[in-house]
Amino acid sequence: MFKILSKISLNSRTSRMTLSAPSIANSAKAGQFVVIRVDSFGERIPLTIADYNKNEGTIDIIYQKVGFTTSKLDMKSKGEYISDVVGPLGKPSQLMGYKNAIIVAGGTGCAIVFPQAKQLHENNCTVSTICGFQRKEFIILEKEICDISDFTRIVTDDGSNGNKGLVTDALLSRLEDKTQQYDLVITVGPLPMMKAVCAITKNFSIKTIVSMNPIMIDGTGMCGGCRVSVNGKTKFACVDGPDFDGHKINFDEIILKDKNYSYLYPNKREKNCKLLRGCSE
């Protein structure tokens, strides 16, 4: 059992939890994730370790209420327990030796990319961060990101924060400024966004890391549910990733699988879920 030490609402659909998990905190590195099971009837879902504190023995998770299990997780309050947390899983991000990086994140992807951005900053790499959200009210981690970034641009789909636009446009204008030489792009967010970002950076021949977060069960290479094609070879996001070379990954396959989630898992639970109906989109 893993105790919830704090729970903060980041916006109407996204929350941040601090969990007591000393062994995981002690081994965690940027880019790794945990698999959680809310209670003994729960399914297992992967969540990125958004932050960790070895001294306090804690890890942070940030989740958006998108489905049944994240909504069930959100029913838990400070002082309560989560039945299972296992990790840290996946390979840590390789972030040494870069000088000038751009982070491109969309929505909850900001939570996934934050530890990597922070690690780059600590490695004395210049960090430019471009984040996109649907609306102003969904912006998360703004202060944290600004603190570790040398340049930050936050755009919204509807312009409600005063910066209407797409992350891809912001990225493009950054890359076209020839006074800067970038050696790394990390992108995390909705699949079509990551695909578009990788198409752009390929033209500029800049190494691009994507962090994949597909459906998985165990997170240890046992189910194969998280398989992705990288350079035509089958890889498991849980043990070979979650970071992959964005120019080698087959996004179309993953997008197709993602689209068919409801066909694969036609359980009535999502439709009947009262928790979800309360969740605004």
Binding site: D218, M222, G224, T234, F236, N250, K257, N260, L264
Partner: peptide, 24 residues
């Protein structure tokens, strides 16, 4: 515990399970 795949076209389609995932 790591499932083998056949490496044939269509294997990454939604609805293709490893026996491990299905049974688990």
């Amino acid at each position: 515990g790591t499932p083998k795949f056949m490496e044939i076209p269509g294997e990454t389609l939604p609805g293709v399970y490893s026996a491990n995932e299905f049974l688990t």
